[in-house]
Nucleic acid binder design. Structure first.
Ligand SMILES: [Mn+2]
Ligand SMILES: [Mn+2]
Ligand SMILES: [Mn+2]
Ligand SMILES: [Mn+2]
Lengths: 219, 219
DNA sequence: ATTAATTTTTAGCCTAGACTAAAAATTAAT
DNA sequence: ATTAATTTTTAGTCTAGGCTAAAAATTAAT
């Protein structure tokens, strides 16, 4: 069966929302991420249920079926491979690629994405540290911690980000925080949970709890 | 102003039809190439005229304005650069890339296409010998002949094709006809205008007038 | 247990871009 | 110059995917 651009975007967002929780997903939460109104979301959920890509009972929320998950994963695979291409081959910065990948992820061609994968030497993660699903829809659970969970005086490695908004990524770049950086938590402010970090030999830097929450690390 | 996918496809097709002739373009000819009905074309022509991309008077046909031409050329530029990418970098054959490029040509990003251009080392022609318009919308007139126009016993070089349908390109490949091949016209059959060609040291091959018409050569 | 607030769904409307059938204009043939 | 054939346009309809406003269901607060 064939998927429209709108359907693909819904499936992707429902996937993201399902990832976090075992609960069914609410209409409103989808409306927020798609920038649509709840009424429009209800409409689409009925269509997606009709096609067998979600299980949906009115007023009770929605979940992806196995098929729905696979469609979502194939779009995420395309998104992340294109992001690698844009950074590794075309020389974009990590904060510049998301919007373009949002378009490229909808290009329909099985051979294309596999040739691209091979051209990029089968990368395992994208420029933001996110894992790239395999052709079979397998995606490794990397089990990273949020930097906000790391204890005082512990040292960790920056493995990814939980958000790919350009302003956030630009902030990290300005702070010299990039994938692979070694970070030591030298101070945790109990008042606002802001964090002070030492990177290599540099002067410590301060980041808010909001920023720390969106940085993924391995201890 | 922003262009929809449908509008871009219309502009591209009107461009192709204008190229040949100084006459205004008929509604029916557009309908044929877009695979739409004439009534739908009329609808769209009114919208395109409204936006200033074509000049259109009912019953009198249509032409691109300068702005319309530039939009069309930017799409053609993207199409051809992506085709080069698919062949040169991903290893596709020349008969496999058109459909994918039809999708990729609608990706919207000024920086993307220029970075791609640079990554590909600023190619001047695509895998079918078609010239790639510059960023400013300049496209060299290459002045090639159709192989069907070449005189008996003349030798010429295969520079391009006038059609990028997969079956046609596969036929050429099977006949060992690729860009750059040296061709000697050793026989022209007056009955059906079919042609016999000698390529290098091979045995002569026979091609129909229909095929010869769609091969572009330099004498 | 009611009532109030919130969330979700339904009903009805809109636009883009297709379609068919009928009308109008143009072109070709007597 | 009429008439016939062809082309093009108009009028009206449809679907996808949005929207608002109102109704219904669920959840929270008395
Ligand atoms: Mn992204
Ligand atoms: Mn990413
Ligand atoms: Mn092509
Ligand atoms: Mn081409």
């Amino acid at each position: 069966m064939t998927t429209s651009l709108a359907e693909e975007n819904y499936l992707k967002i429902i996937y993201r929302l399902c990832e976090g929780t075992k609960e069914d997903i609410s209409t409103n939460s989808i409306a927020e991420l798609t920038n649509n109104k709840a009424a429009s979301v209800t409409d689409m959920l009925q269509k997606l249920a009709e096609k067998g890509w979600v299980t949906y009972q009115k007023y009770q929320g929605v979940r992806l079926t196995k098929i729905g998950q696979n469609i979502a994963l194939s779009i995420i695979r395309k998104h992340r491979l294109w992001e690698v291409f844009l950074v590794e081959k075309l020389g974009y910065n990590w904060d510049e690629v998301h919007e373009i990948a949002e378009q490229l992820e909808h290009i329909e061609s099985e051979t294309l994405i596999n040739k691209l994968d091979s051209f990029l030497d089968f990368p395992k993660i994208d420029p933001h540290g996110d894992p790239i699903p395999s052709q079979e829809g397998e995606i490794p659970e990397l089990g990273y911690l949020h930097l906000s969970e790391v204890k005082l005086n512990e040292t960790c490695t920056l493995m990814g980000v939980a958000k790919d908004s350009a302003v956030f990524l630009q902030l990290l770049t300005k702070l010299n925080l990039s994938l692979g950086a070694r970070l030591e938590v030298v101070e945790i402010n109990t008042f606002d949970r802001s964090v002070s970090l030492k990177i290599a030999e540099q002067e410590p830097i301060f980041i808010s709890h909001e920023v720390a929450k969106n940085i993924l690390v391995k201890v």
